[in-house]
Nucleic acid binder design. Structure first.
Lengths: 153, 153
DNA sequence: CTATACACGTGATGC
DNA sequence: TGCATCACGTGTATA
């Protein structure tokens, strides 16, 4: 009973990141739990409930791992592969996005209220992270965009 | 041995959201695991390893729950309190932030490349969502920036 | 050898 | 009632 899912052992680190399906049909619990213990033979009923709890819990764990994998997919800069570290990186990333959003908001506010400064050119203060792809990590080198025309098309 | 942490049962839904500490020192495993089985009495050694594994696993679970709680704290609009749902909401929120970031990037690009239109005034088309609080759930209403074609990152 | 991290089954709880 | 979710202890594998 302990070595029932031995080939499952490292699907968190290997299989799960390649394919998340193909492991649905075990055909192992459903073998002796197949079908209908319809409210008769009470020991069979409780064993049915037990194994149903087992498979339910198994699905819950699987769903949670899939979600965690999906979270890791949308977050750049994953430091470690731990579950806890994945969540931590996601938190840091969200706060980073919040900070950037506040900065850009201030910037755009300046643009549309002040429009231009006295020189007739826009001056962005410390635009220190690219907005679209921030995972380039451009190590804080005081790069100053005087004109972003280089990016467009 | 099964009812050892009975008062822990619903700390996920109640206690954890109020205080996450104050539960560190059990003084219950360390009671019979106190001190020194320094490489003698092999049964004691394995029981020491076992209970050490228990408390280690307990700390791992606790850390993971704290992280999950912190994740829930930075994500607005939590639909359900499930672990899986919390992660799902975080994923959706990050993607939503990515979308908005792209939009704002386009907007700022339009502002500083085109600077002014022929009327000498800025024209924002459909600035319908506040940039800081996007949790208003603007359901994808085909807003399209004609000024900026393909950010091409 | 010892941490660390994980999946698993199990009993409990709430809806 | 059954179903979903959770914390727990345990065995096991990797660094």
């Amino acid at each position: 009973m302990e070595n029932i899912g031995e080939e499952y052992k490292h699907y968190w680190e290997t299989n799960m990141f390649l394919q998340t399906e193909e492991l649905d049909s075990w055909g192992l619990d459903e073998a002796f739990n197949s079908g209908y213990y319809d409210s008769s033979s009470p020991d069979g009923a409780q064993s049915s409930a037990a194994s149903k709890n087992i498979v339910s819990e198994r699905n819950r764990r699987k769903k949670l791992n899939e979600r965690l994998f999906a979270l890791r997919a949308v977050v750049p800069k994953i430091s470690k592969m731990d579950k806890a570290s994945i969540i931590k990186d996601a938190i840091d990333y969200i706060q980073e996005l919040h900070d950037q959003e506040r900065r850009i908001q201030a910037e755009i506010l300046q643009l549309e209220s002040g429009k231009l400064n006295e020189n007739g050119v826009f001056r962005f203060q410390r635009r220190d992270a690219c907005l679209v792809k921030i995972q380039e990590e451009e190590n804080r080198s005081e790069l100053r965009f005087r004109g972003v025309k280089s990016i467009s098309h």
